[in-house]
Design a protein around this nucleic acid. Structure first.
Lengths: 225, 225
DNA sequence: AAATCCAAGATTTTCGAAAATCTGTATTGC
DNA sequence: GCAATACAGATTTTCGAAAATCTTGGATTT
């Protein structure tokens, strides 16, 4: 693995995880120090991330972490529902045994990790990985590279919004609306495996809209601070 | 404008325009020679293009122009229809006077250039620019940054497939099926301005499917060579 | 004869310094 | 006093060479 790839992974993780705050300028000297490498691999990583809209850049003024906004969060949510509904329908039409096995397996792994909790940073990362794997498995039989690419893009984007909520500030109650996310995942998997496309898509859309709603209500007071 | 941006534009143009053939390896020394700059700005441009899937890369083996395939062309076409149908519906719902003016204006400019023909390379480029501007204008009131981004991505992709057809090899007849593309654009604009979303989306889907069909039948014999 | 190993050349990747540009501050001119 | 200008420091961008890695061809071994 080249240094540029390491830089890409590290920057991506730190941006998505919120270590590098939205809007923060990314100074080359700083990054070189932080990640222990020269400018070249860093600039390559930053250019890739810019194309993915995780960082912005202005010529001769450098890079900065792409900002977040509630409008954009809703846009991403709605676009996600459009993309994933189509991909889910296609998967339900075309998916075979292997696809089903992937769903069942990744759901099981997700539930195990969810039961284990997210006490440590490592557990939280594992949960995130398995959550992604489950949603990926649902769509994996859609046969469309473009739908999968857009799914990945929007998944990462939504992860940026989700993260600060999953690790709530001290004193802030973690849950305002009672909600069993893993039950939603189970219901979604069940409808999908039963090849009930309408129900599965409705559950998927609900799943995302509820998350968005929750983020919205959690951010509204924060904005008023 | 920095050299890296110039490199990005030049490479993009040459890849989309087919000067750099799909699958062709992109050697740094060669590119440095061709575009008259050092490795650094070229690598930055290549990394951005890689994130946009216009070039592929393997660590320590370098970059190459992303390959094309008919499967991918159909995938892009179908995904395009999904994305743009949604964006068009949203625009029809929300678009105001400025949006309408943009459509009328860009259509007019497109028709003028189409009447002028594509004899010179410059005319062909102008037609492509105005074609893009027209399709962009149709969707521009959708209010979704993500839909617009995906539209742009897929537009560029489809341009790669369209280009070799627009500049047909000597001896190959340019049109196998009679078709008046500009009439399709006019009908599409008319339905859109009449706020008839169902009709507009149907026309849009037809427009893309016909292009895809034509590309498919033009490439099938080419593949048999 | 086939497979393996090694060296030379080609190529990519990374670094460190130089060039170009921006930003903020102090100075000049009106 | 205020705007415009010039300078110094900070920062980004680019280059050219060095380091690391891959590829190719032939020599050696089994």
């Amino acid at each position: 693995m080249t240094l540029a790839e390491k830089a890409y992974d590290a920057l991506r993780r730190d941006i998505v995880g919120g270590t590098l705050k939205p809007g923060a300028p990314l100074r080359m000297a700083q990054l070189s120090d932080r990640y222990g490498m020269g400018f070249s691999p860093l600039r390559e990583a930053l250019n890739r991330l810019q194309a993915e809209r995780l960082v912005t850049s202005v010529a001769l003024k450098g890079f900065s972490v792409a900002p977040l906004s509630m409008e954009e969060m809703w846009d991403a949510t709605n676009t996600r529902i459009l993309i994933e509904s189509r991909a889910l329908r296609l998967s339900i039409e075309q998916g075979g045994d292997e696809w089903e096995a992937g769903i069942v397996g990744s759901l099981h792994a997700l539930l195990l990790q969810a039961a284990r909790g997210t006490a440590t940073e490592e557990d939280a990362r594992a949960l995130e990985t398995r959550h992604h794997a489950f949603h990926w498995a649902l769509l994996s039989a859609c046969g469309s590279g473009w739908l999968m690419e857009f799914f990945q893009r929007l998944y990462v984007e939504s992860e940026r919004y989700r993260h600060p909520i999953l690790a709530p500030r001290a004193g802030t109650p973690a849950r305002d609306v009672p909600r069993d996310i893993q039950a939603e995942h189970e219901a979604l998997a069940k409808a999908t495996l039963a090849r009930d496309a309408d129900l599965a898509c409705a559950l998927l859309a609900d799943h995302y809209r509820r998350t968005a709603q929750r983020l919205d209500s959690l951010m509204a007071p924060a904005a008023a601070e």
